[in-house]
């Protein structure tokens, strides 16, 4: 997994609330494997392209310069609600997105982001609003997301602090995937399991009758 420490990049203001994972990756693209070149076009596909993949709606913000090169999204409430599909994150990553700032996130989507090296940043709704206003006044402005210092630096220099769960933050900064982390616990898992199955034998998987 790629590590995420600090990023300064073009940020795209996106003020719709309740952006669900189906918009980030329409269901029919779930089949695309990681690395498929078409994945670049999948994020908000149906707003950006026609059914057969031709560009449409040049007004749509992700179809416009400089946002085609955005690496940060400043959203609003409930980013990534809906299905657990991780392909939503692959689509975002393929577009080039590395961090999303939002007032709230879909639970599973938030985890899916951190597990793929993308940095979700939760700020207050007012802070998201202020950031988006600055970005709208100053097209193509850059924002800094600093995971080590746990702060976002706005185009005008304003700093916003955020929180992330310490373990998630450590894994992102070190680029440590969960399996490597958990492997350090294999003994504890074995002990737990032996005890669990001994005290509650009915919880082990039975041979089907």
């Amino acid at each position: 997994m790629k590590s995420f420490t600090k990023l300064t990049a073009i940020a795209c203001p996106f003020d719709e609330i309740n952006v669900d994972t189906n918009q980030l990756c329409p269901t029919r693209f779930n089949k695309l494997p990681i690395g498929d070149p078409y994945l670049k076009k999948v994020m908000f596909h149906d707003q950006r392209f026609t059914q057969d993949g031709k560009p449409r709606n040049t007004d749509f913000i992700f179809n416009r310069e400089p946002y085609k090169k955005a690496e940060i999204i400043v959203a609003d409430q409930n980013w990534g609600i809906g299905s657990s599909r991780e392909s939503a994150v692959y689509a975002m990553a393929s577009f080039g997105i590395k961090s999303v700032i939002a007032a709230s996130f879909g639970d599973i989507h938030y985890n899916n982001m951190t597990k793929n090296g993308l940095c979700p940043v939760q700020l207050s709704q007012e802070a998201c609003h202020e950031l988006r206003s600055m970005l709208l006044e100053n097209i193509g402005a850059k924002i800094t997301v600093d995971l080590e210092e746990l702060k976002v630096i706005a185009p005008d220099g304003t700093e916003y602090e955020f929180n992330m769960h310490p373990l998630k933050r450590r894994c992102l900064i070190q680029g440590l995937d969960d399996i490597s982390l958990t492997k350090q616990y294999m003994d504890a898992i074995k002990d737990f399991e032996a005890n669990h199955h001994k005290s509650k034998p009915f919880m082990t998987v039975q041979k089907p009758s």
């Binding site: 597990k115 793929n116 969960d178 294999m186």
Partner: peptide, 11 residues
């Protein structure tokens, strides 16, 4: 998610 499911399969 798929990464979490992979993690569960492994551990």
């Amino acid at each position: 998610g798929a990464s979490e499911a992979g993690h569960i399969m492994a551990t």
